[in-house]
Each structure stands twice: as C-alpha cells, then as structure tokens.
C-alpha cells in the first residue's frame, strides 16, 4: 500500500515540477521578448551571437547534411529502381529533406552544438556572478545576455536548416547522378515538377523557425535558471539537449499534421 502511495507521490511530484517549469519558461519567454529591443537594435551584440550559434555550427551541419543526402541517395535509388522509377530519386531526396529531415536533423544538431554551448555560457556566467555583477551595474542581464543569444539562435536556425537541405540534395545528386547513373536532366526536372515552393520549401523553413525559437528558449532558460555550481551547470546542459530533442520531435509531429494534412 505504501509502495503505491510512494509511486503516486513520485508521479505527482514529477507532474507538478514539469508544469511549474513550463509556466516559468513561459514567463521567461515573455520577459525575453519584452526586453529584446536592445538585442535587435545593437547589431554588434546580435552578430556575435549569430557567429556563436550559427557560424560555429556550420561545419557539423554541412558535413551531416552531405552524408544524410548520400545515404538517402543510395537507399532511395535501391528502392525506386525496383519499381523502375529511379528518375524520381531527385523528388524523393528533395521532399524528405525539405519537409522533414532538413528542419528536424538540423535542429537536433543545433541543440547539441549551439544549444548546449549557450546553456553552458549563461550557466557559467551565473555561477561566476557575472550576471549579478551586470545587474549591479544597472544592466539587465536578460536584455544584455539572454535576449541576444535567443535571437542569434532564432536567426541562425532556419539558415542552418536550409544549408542542411541544400547539402543533402547535392549529396543525393552526387550519388544518384554521378555514381549510379540516374539521368541528370530527369533528376532535376522531376524534382522541380513535384516540389512546390510554398508547400515544401517554405513550410520547411517555417518549421525550422519554430524549432529555432524552441531550442533557443530552452537553452537560455536552462542556463539562466541553472544551479550556480559546476554540477548544476552540467545538469542544465544535459537537460537542454534532452528537452530540446523531445520538444523538436513532438513539435514536428504537430506541425506536420497541420501543414501537410489533406495534401495530394
């Protein structure tokens, strides 16, 4: 009996904790938005964060995109040529990258590369009293430290996702056309014929903007509310990566079911 009660208590505690964090994150989100003026007007602040979140993630995004494209090309060709439609390879590679893999995989990589770094940076600034020192200098840390990092992430994410998709399509082209002998013209024209800019490209970009907001918010939130100790910061980094991954996949399902419902 007491076992059951313990389990119920544990469950209740967990639920309360989650709901509490969600509420706190929402308030924090509002605060960040309201204090974003300086972050968006002072380009030097924003540029540094785009560099930190975007430019530093370039290498991993470009290389991963290329490899995902190569694998899609190989697998897609193998399946499609069974039905004699290998020229549809371009369509398959482009649609899977633009609609799903580009935004989702790029966001997962972004969370583990840039998200964790943002959490670590803010967490360490908190642990070494830098945020408090800033507050004592009458400079709001949310406006000066958090908001630029948030927007740097939000701006970088769609660019990274588009680069990921582009590299993937080029990878698929490399395998399909250069190595497996799919006709170059058929590859591109079948792709162009069935990929719609608004439904496929634009929806993918929109998805990645949403993911950018989610991952950046999680990263700055976990950093800002981390326990100011070495252990607390490392736990916050882990939470950033795990929470981001779950949120990205859940949001992807929701967004996909809204965007591509009833499309032929």
């Amino acid at each position: 009996m007491s076992r059951v009660l313990d389990m119920l208590r544990f469950l209740g505690g967990q639920v309360i904790d989650r709901v509490w964090r969600l509420g706190r994150a929402s308030c924090f989100f509002l605060a960040v938005l309201m204090k974003s003026g300086a972050a968006l007007l002072r380009f030097s602040l924003l540029f540094r964060e785009i560099w930190f979140a975007g430019v530093l993630s370039l290498l991993i995004i470009l290389v991963s995109g290329l490899f995902v494209g190569l694998v899609l090309g190989l697998q897609g060709y193998e399946i499609l040529q069974r039905y004699g439609s290998a020229q549809a390879l371009g369509t398959m590679v482009a649609l899977s990258l633009l609609r799903e893999l580009g935004p989702v995989v790029a966001a997962l990589l972004f969370a583990s590369r840039a998200g964790s770094a943002i959490t670590a940076e803010i967490g360490l600034m908190k642990a070494t009293e830098q945020l408090k020192a800033m507050d004592m200098m009458a400079v709001d840390p949310v406006a000066r430290v958090v908001a630029p990092r948030f927007w740097g992430g939000v701006i970088s994410m769609p660019i990274l996702a588009m680069l990921f998709s582009t590299m993937g399509i080029l990878g698929g082209w490399l395998i399909g056309v250069v190595f497996l002998g799919v006709d170059d013209g058929a590859f591109w024209s079948s792709m162009r014929a069935s990929v719609d800019f608004r439904h496929d490209v634009w929806n993918g970009v929109f998805k990645s903007v949403i993911f950018g907001v989610a991952v950046s918010l999680i990263a700055v939130f976990e950093g800002y509310y981390s326990e100011p100790t070495a252990e607390g910061v490392s736990r916050a980094i882990t939470r950033t990566v795990v929470t981001s991954a779950l949120v990205i996949l859940a949001l992807d399902f929701v967004l996909t079911s809204f965007m591509f419902k009833g499309m032929s």
């Binding site: 009293e129 830098q130 408090k132 004592m136």
Partner: peptide, 16 residues
C-alpha cells in the same frame, strides 16, 4: 545603481 559600484568576491569579470 549607476551611482553604486560593487566589487564581487572573485571579481566577476566578463570572461568573454
């Protein structure tokens, strides 16, 4: 606070 200065225990310099 603009008219206050505070020195923290370990300096709290901005590391970046």
């Amino acid at each position: 606070r603009r008219r206050m200065g505070m020195l923290f225990q370990f300096g709290a310099l901005f590391t970046d």
